[in-house]
Design a protein around this nucleic acid. Structure first.
Lengths: 145, 145
DNA sequence: GTCAGTGCAAACGGTTTGCATGTTT
DNA sequence: AAACATGCAAACCGTTTGCACTGAC
């Protein structure tokens, strides 16, 4: 069940199997996500991609990410009023974003379990700690510059 | 410490004391928030206000809400990718938004306390359950239409 | 050769801003 | 009369979309 990070070729193979075409931009987006490992905005991803495929447009990156989400290769997370961030899917985790420095951190789902159950018991609300990041202050910002 | 809901006149008095002018639009925004009691988008508030002061513009409502936030009379909350909602400040509570129907609910801070401590202990992150709503499914949406 | 994929520009929704005008004090 | 507050339109940011073109198959 511990689905390890796929390789570029595995992702490409999956997309081909779905009848999708493999373009330079698509390969570069996949590579950018695999290399980054963590959470990136579309703007950041586009920057990385443009280093290899110069006139890749933002809208193309949005479209590629949308496709990768459909095939459960990536996920995105909303972070307060900041831009959404994209990351490889598969690992199960929650998100918290620092409202001061804007960094998004992953938090293992275990930390959420008790709370999630308590919330559901008292309010009927089923928490999804993945799709929207919790807000607050990260250690660094909390304890001063 | 249990600061009850202020009256329209009390809010007006506070603003006057701060040297602010009281316009028809401002009174109407205050009234709309007091009457509503719960969370409203700027568009909703503007609609209510326009019923009384017909050509109040969205930007005016934004500016009034900004002023009311400075004086800690209202607060706003971000709800995933939806519009922010505004509500009277003072009551201490967290927010959860249903990702299906979009409704924002208040949750007493007690439910967050244990989790908040656990999160802080394990990750150093200090949760602010107020400014950004947690995401998930409300009871109604979870259990089917 | 076909069609999915692309670049570009325009449009979007929520929010903010500049500026000339109106209204509170 | 002097500030402040407002309406309007334009700009903003992140994101989506329409369209003609290009390049993967």
């Amino acid at each position: 069940m511990a689905n390890r990070t796929p390789t570029e070729d595995e992702v490409v193979a999956q997309l081909r199997a779905e009848g999708k075409r493999i373009t330079q931009a698509k390969r570069a987006v996949i590579r950018a996500l695999l290399d980054a490992g963590d959470h990136r905005t579309v703007e950041e991803i586009t920057g990385t991609v443009q280093a290899q495929v110069p006139d890749t447009s933002l809208s193309t990156v949005y479209r590629i990410l949308e496709e990768l989400e459909i095939f459960a290769i990536v996920d995105h997370t909303h972070n307060g009023h900041q831009a959404a961030t994209y990351h490889l899917a598969g690992r199960d985790h929650g998100h918290v974003t620092c409202q001061r420095c804007g960094t998004t951190f992953e938090v293992s789902t275990e930390v959420f379990d008790l709370f999630s159950r308590e919330l559901r018991r008292t309010t009927g609300f089923q928490l999804d700690p993945h799709h929207v990041a919790l807000s607050g202050l990260c250690e660094e910002c909390r304890t001063g510059d």
